[in-house]
Design a protein around this nucleic acid. Structure first.
Lengths: 255, 255
DNA sequence: CCTCCATTAATGGTCAGACCATTATAAAGT
DNA sequence: ACTTTATAATGGTCTGACCATTAATGGAGG
């Protein structure tokens, strides 16, 4: 079973299913610019005829594209499949799935988050506009008024999102959103409230540092904050069965 | 059309389609641990009966899960839908789609890459085992022997992947893979070869720094390397029509 | 007893045609 | 001019069928 080091690089054969070919063609038109955001694809029955496949096969293709966030299906006359503008939701979903499949530990997530936020804070420090900063303050203020845990989480997510936006680089927004969404599943600790005052203080402090363009102070504040949250989350791992584990389950079919 | 600041937070209604409910249920079982990697779902016809939906609806659900990388469908007797172990491919695909939908510029990608690799190099510097380092050297050596552009790209991707793995944090691997895949579409410049010698040198130098655990030198080397690549890519933007643009196309249906 | 090959049954992939729910538009009524 | 009703297009679902692939079964031949 040895693999010669400079093997002829056989391409793994893969039965091309109809819907895959369709997806490829549409993705290709997307990459080529023939299709762009807002465009509408022909109706299903029509498209099926064009591709010369059955409607069900075509539908599976459309379903794939929809799940991938590329199109959006709308019912009724004048409905159809519309090319969507890019939303990071699907990436977040994909990362979430990845974690659920049991390959990433809480520590890894936290470390990635720490590192990512460090960059973000520093970039935001350079680039945040006054309106960004004002928005951050507004969100911090709103957090104080919210009571439900869920609403406060929403505020936190919004805060991080605005902070990421202040870097003027959308990639960071994606990373942050993904990590936030995943880590959110761990929160829900009972004494979540006790942290709140400290958290809100920290948010305001951070904005002050940003406004002073004090990169290091801002980064330090963020780090302190995240570590505090991490310690808290760690102690309150979602009760039942600690859904995230590292080990790879290598089991074979259990049918 | 104003949105009150503290609005009651109406949830956007959304017709629940059958296949979505199915997906949710399966995802839930996944998050709960009832389903785990390697498990096999019942056959389509059986599952459809269980959910009391038609086979087509069920298939659209399975298709979604497959596209999401959660299951893998295999034909034939003893075939079926198997829960997959986590592969970052889908995340990469999602990010690629995101970029294709026209929201991220080359500069953004490069900046994100620079920042990410900086972290990775520093962490790898702390944590890389000798076997990691040896593997990196082996890949660099192999790069020198490869001739085709495509093979060399493969080497580069492998190099970055191993480097990311050396951080012992899978999240970084995902980020890097995604960025690599996307940036790969930009490469393909004509004088790609002229860079090669410099590139390979750089790879070896980096490993030396890592082995000395000289974090700053390693990070600097990586930075220099990436900036060189970036300058090159920038000059050789894929001929035709520079597929990545920043502006948001806000057009409405063109059916 | 073992090996090899044809048969068979289960399964995913595809197809064809139908009906339902939703929705924008057109027509009709007031 | 406005409202109401019909109409037709469209996505979502259902039914039932057939095909291609594949693992297991079982028999033929050594």
């Amino acid at each position: 079973m040895r693999t010669p080091p400079s093997s002829p690089n056989f391409a793994p054969i893969k039965t091309q299913r109809a819907f895959e070919v369709i997806c490829e063609q549409i993705r290709a038109q997307l990459a080529a610019g023939t299709l762009k955001t807002g465009d509408k694809l022909p109706a299903e029955r029509e498209l099926a005829a064009e591709f010369q496949v059955s409607r069900s096969a075509l539908r599976e293709a459309l379903r794939s594209l929809e799940v991938a966030g590329i199109i959006r299906n709308v019912k009724g006359v004048k409905g159809g499949a519309f090319i969507q503008s890019a939303e990071p939701d699907r990436i977040v979903q994909a990362m979430q799935d990845y974690v659920h499949l049991g390959n990433v530990s809480l520590d890894e997530l936290t470390e990635a988050r720490l590192a990512t936020q460090d960059i973000i804070v520093r970039l935001a420090c350079e680039r945040a506009s006054e309106s960004d900063l004002a928005e951050l303050e507004a969100i911090a203020e709103r957090t104080r008024q919210e009571t439900s845990v869920e609403a406060r989480y929403e505020c936190a997510a919004a805060y991080y999102r605005v902070l990421a936006r202040a870097t003027k680089n959308r990639m960071f927004g994606i990373f942050v959103d993904s990590l936030s969404a995943i880590l959110h599943e761990f929160v829900q600790g009972p004494d979540y409230e006790t942290l709140q005052e400290t958290l809100i203080d920290s948010r305001f402090k951070l904005v002050r540092h940003l406004r002073m363009r004090d990169e290091d102070a801002a980064a330090a504040e963020m780090r302190k904050h995240l570590e505090r949250v991490h310690r808290h989350v760690r102690k309150n791992l979602k009760a039942q069965d600690a859904p995230v584990k590292v080990g790879k389950a290598r089991g074979k079919a259990a049918g």
